[in-house]
Design a protein around this nucleic acid. Structure first.
Lengths: 217, 217
DNA sequence: CGATCGCTTGAGCTATCTCAACCGGCGTGG
DNA sequence: CCACGCCGGTTGAGATAGCTCAAGCGATCG
C-alpha cells in the first residue's frame, strides 16, 4: 500500500482518532499502541465495540459510508499509518488485490462482532470475562505482545465493563473471583493468565485445539 | 452483476442455505422471502445474528475467508440469486465498482452488528424488543413490506429470544406487556405497530430525526 | 385421536444492578 | 514538601430484572 500512505501520526492517550457521526478525511492502520472502538448511546452510556490492536484498520466505514458509526480513541500512545480517504476508490480501481484484502479485513471484523454478539447474548459475567481474556491472549500472542504468561492490557475496568455489558461493580467482583481462583489476574495494566486450562473451561472452550479453528489473523 | 449470476434458487422454510464452518461454492442475493443468520455456541445455544430480508447478500464471509462463521436458514419460502464463489476474484479485478459496492455492503453489515451489540450490552428486555421492532419496521418500510401499521414477521418467539439474548419466557411476557400497553402486537406472523411514538419512547429513540448527528464538540 | 409444536402463565431463585462508602496513589498548587 | 483533590479500584448491602422449572392450552397434522 506504499503509494497510498500519506504519512504517519503519533497520538497520545485520550486522543479521539475518529468521531461517531463525522466523516474523517483519513483512514489509518495501527502500527503501535492500543485503543478502543466504541459507540455512545442515546442514554449517554458507552458500548465498547472492540479493542484496537496493532495491525487493525480504522475508518473503513467512513471510507465507504458517509460517516463513521462509532468513535475510536487512543488508550496508549499510538503510531498510525495515515491514508487519504479520497484514494480509496483509486485503490479499488488500480489495485484489486488490495481492495480484496480490505474486504477480507471487513469480513474478519464482522466475524469478530458476531462472536461478541454471542458472548453478550448468551454468557454470564464470568464467562464473558474469561472468553474475552482468552481471545485477547490469543490475539496478543499472534502479535508478539505476550511475554510468558503476561501481556499488556492498559485499560480501565470501566472499559471492560462497557465492552461486556456489565456494571463496573460486577466486573470488579468477577475479576476478583478469577484472581482468587488462580485463573487470571489483571493489575497495573498487565494481564496475567495463571491457568489457561481453567480459563478455557470457564469460557466454555472445549479445548479442541485446532480441529476446527483456522488462524484468522 | 448480470454476468456473474449463475442462476436462481428457490428454498423452502427450514432450508439451511449456509452452514457454519463450511465453505459454500455459492453466494446469494435474496430476491424474496425472509431468513435468519445465526451462530451455534459451544453450549448448543443459538445466537441469532440478524434477520435476513430481501436485498441482503449472503456468504461474503465464505467468499473472502475460508469458511462461514455463521449459518443462514430460510424461514419462509425464499428466492435467491446465485453466484459462483470462484467468480468473486474476477469481480474485484474486472469490476471495481461492484467490488466497492460489496465492501460497502460489508461495512453496513458491520454497522448493524455494532448497533446490535449496543442493544444487547445496554438495554433491558423491553427496550431490546422495542428497538428491534422499530428498526425492523423502518427496514420493512424501505422494502415495501409494510401495509398500514402491519408488516410480515414470520418468526417464532424463540427466534426473537435468541436474537436478543433473552429467555423465551421473558420474551413472551415482555411481548404481552407491549400488547397490553397498546404499543405493538405480534401475532400470527404479523407485526402490528399500534403506537410508534410510544415504541420509540421505550426504545430510547428521542425523535430528533436528524438533529442528533453533529455532536462534534 | 394422540402427538407435536408454539404460545402462555405461575412461582421461586439468583445473577446482576444500583447506591454508597472507603482506600491508596498521584499530580498539582500553595 | 506537604496537603488536598481526583481518579481508579474495592467492598458491602439491598433491590430487581430476568432466569429456570413446570404446567396447561389450542391448533395442526398424520
Amino acid at each position: 500500500m506504499q503509494k497510498f500512505k500519506a504519512g504517519e501520526l503519533d497520538a497520545v492517550p485520550g486522543t479521539t482518532l475518529m468521531m461517531e457521526g463525522s466523516s474523517s478525511p483519513h483512514l489509518y492502520t495501527v502500527l503501535e499502541g492500543m485503543g478502543l472502538r466504541y459507540k455512545t448511546l442515546a442514554s449517554g452510556e458507552r458500548q465498547v465495540v472492540n479493542i484496537v490492536l496493532p495491525g487493525d484498520f480504522i475508518g473503513l466505514q467512513a471510507g465507504v459510508m458517509q460517516e463513521m458509526q462509532h468513535s475510536v480513541e487512543a488508550t496508549t500512545d499510538m503510531t498510525l499509518c495515515v491514508f487519504d480517504r479520497k484514494d480509496l476508490w483509486s485503490l479499488f480501481r488500480d489495485h484489486p488485490e488490495r481492495a480484496y484484502d480490505l474486504t477480507w479485513l471487513s469480513a474478519v471484523e464482522e466475524y469478530l462482532l458476531g462472536e461478541s454478539l454471542a458472548v453478550l447474548g448468551h454468557m454470564s459475567g464470568i464467562e464473558r470475562i474469561a472468553t474475552t481474556f482468552s481471545r485477547l491472549f490469543a490475539r496478543g500472542s499472534a502479535l508478539g505482545l505476550v511475554t510468558g504468561t503476561r501481556m499488556p492490557f492498559p485499560y480501565k475496568q470501566q472499559d471492560l465493563a462497557d465492552a461486556l455489558g456489565l456494571s463496573l461493580v460486577h466486573t470488579n467482583k468477577t475479576l476478583r473471583q478469577l484472581r482468587e481462583r488462580g485463573v487470571a489476574a489483571w493489575r497495573g495494566g498487565v494481564l496475567e493468565i495463571m491457568d489457561i486450562g481453567a480459563l478455557h473451561g470457564i469460557a466454555g472452550i472445549e479445548e479442541e485445539a485446532d480441529a476446527r479453528r483456522r488462524p484468522l489473523i
